[in-house]
Amino acid sequence: MSFQIERGLFKYDFIDYHAVLCVRVDADASEIRKRYLKIARRLHPDSCGAANDDEKRLASQLLSKLVNPAYENLYQDRNRAEHTAVLAQVGKRLAQDPSSVELTTDNARQLAATPNYDSAYKNAISQVSKIQYKTLKQSLEAIAQISELNLVYLMRSAGKSLKSPSATNATPASHTNTAVENHAAPAKPKEDPVFAGYLRRAQELIVKNQLSQARVELQDALKMKPNSSESHSLIGVVYMKQNQIKMAKIHFDRALQLNPKDETALEGKTKIDKFLKKTSPGAGKKSTVSAGASKSAKSESGGLFGGLFGGKKK
Rank of each mutant, 00 (worst) to 15 (best):
S166C: 04
S166N: 00
A167P: 00
N169L: 03
N169Y: 01
A170Y: 00
A170F: 00
A170T: 00
T171Q: 06
P172D: 00
P172A: 04
A173W: 01
S174H: 09
S174Q: 08
H175Y: 07
H175Q: 13
N177D: 10
T178Q: 01
T178K: 00
T178D: 11
T178C: 03
A179L: 06
V180L: 11
N182S: 14
N182E: 12
H183R: 10
A185F: 08
A185M: 12
P186H: 05
P186V: 06
A187T: 12
K188C: 04
K188H: 08
K188D: 08
D192W: 01
P193W: 01
A196V: 02
Y198W: 04
R200F: 06
R200Y: 07
R200I: 05
A202V: 03
Q203W: 11
Q203H: 09
E204H: 01
L205Q: 10
I206K: 01
I206G: 00
V207E: 07
K208T: 04
K208D: 13
Q210K: 15
Q210S: 13
Q210E: 13
L211R: 13
S212Y: 10
Q213K: 15
Q213R: 13
Q213L: 15
A214E: 06
R215M: 15
V216A: 12
V216N: 12
V216Q: 14
V216K: 15
E217R: 13
Q219E: 15
Q219R: 14
A221G: 09
L222Q: 07
M224V: 13
P226A: 12
N227Y: 14
S228V: 08
E230I: 10
S231E: 08
S231D: 05
L234P: 07
G236N: 10
V237H: 07
M240H: 06
K241T: 14
K241I: 04
Q242L: 06
N243H: 10
N243C: 06
N243Q: 14
Q244S: 12
K246C: 02
M247I: 02
A248V: 09
K249I: 02
I250W: 09
I250C: 06
H251K: 03
H251V: 03
F252W: 11
F252L: 02
F252H: 05
D253C: 04
D253S: 13
R254G: 00
R254Y: 08
R254K: 15
R254V: 06
L258P: 02
L258V: 08
N259R: 10
N259H: 11
P260V: 12
D262E: 14
D262P: 07
D262N: 15
